[in-house]
């Protein structure tokens, strides 16, 4: 079972990333839940969601101690890093941090310049699909084909966005390939 927490600002594609990861896991034959945190949110506020992926039946969709933490900004990092399980994986959108910023602790750090790479692809909104590529490359929760299927399912009605998001997915995978 993999428990993931994703955090960032509203508008960074946090919720969509969670949904795409969940749909990708489902298409690979696994069970998955997605759960957004919601409250009296406001524009520019935080957006967080939880994704649980498992071969078995899933109990709670709520994640308090993640194995995988994906942070799109400083606020999410400050809020959730203390909850990351020892030995867990931290994916950071390094475009939001200075080059000198270090992330120290008992966890693996995967830096993904998601915003920068998205701008290079010509669409700032695909930073989440870039992050998705990095996550599936490093965690191996599903194959690239299933990840593509997840993207297509979640963006079903917006077919003009399929191509650029799949391109972004591959870009993210390449960015963290060692």
């Amino acid at each position: 079972m993999v428990r993931m927490l994703i955090g960032g600002f509203g508008g960074q594609g946090v919720i969509m990333l969670g949904q795409m990861l969940g749909a990708a896991a489902i298409s690979s034959g696994k069970n998955a839940t997605f759960y957004p945190t919601y409250g009296p949110e406001q524009r520019g506020g935080t957006a967080n969601c939880a994704v649980v992926i498992s071969d078995k039946e899933i109990g709670s969709p709520i994640v308090t101690r993640p194995d995988v933490l994906i942070c799109f900004n400083q606020t999410a990092l400050e809020k959730f890093l203390p909850t990351l399980k020892p030995g867990g994986m931290l994916f950071v959108n390094s475009s939001q941090f200075s080059k000198e910023h270090t992330f120290r602790g008992d966890f693996y750090v995967i830096r993904v310049a998601a915003d920068t790479l998205a701008q290079e692809l010509g669409n700032a909104k695909v930073a989440n699909a870039i992050m998705m590529g990095a996550v599936i490359q490093k965690t191996e929760i599903c194959t690239p084909e299933h990840a593509e299927a997840g993207i297509v399912e979640e963006l079903m009605s917006k077919s003009q966005l399929h191509e650029v998001n799949i391109k972004a997915l591959k870009c993210g995978m390449l960015a963290v390939r060692s």
């Binding site: 949904q19 969940g22 489902i26 069970n31 998955a32 839940t33 997605f34 759960y35 957004p36 919601y38 899933i58 969709p61 709520i62």
Partner: peptide
């Protein structure tokens, strides 16, 4: 509210 907001297969 949890079952209503969560996504599942």
């Amino acid at each position: 509210g949890c079952l209503g907001a969560m996504m599942e297969s």
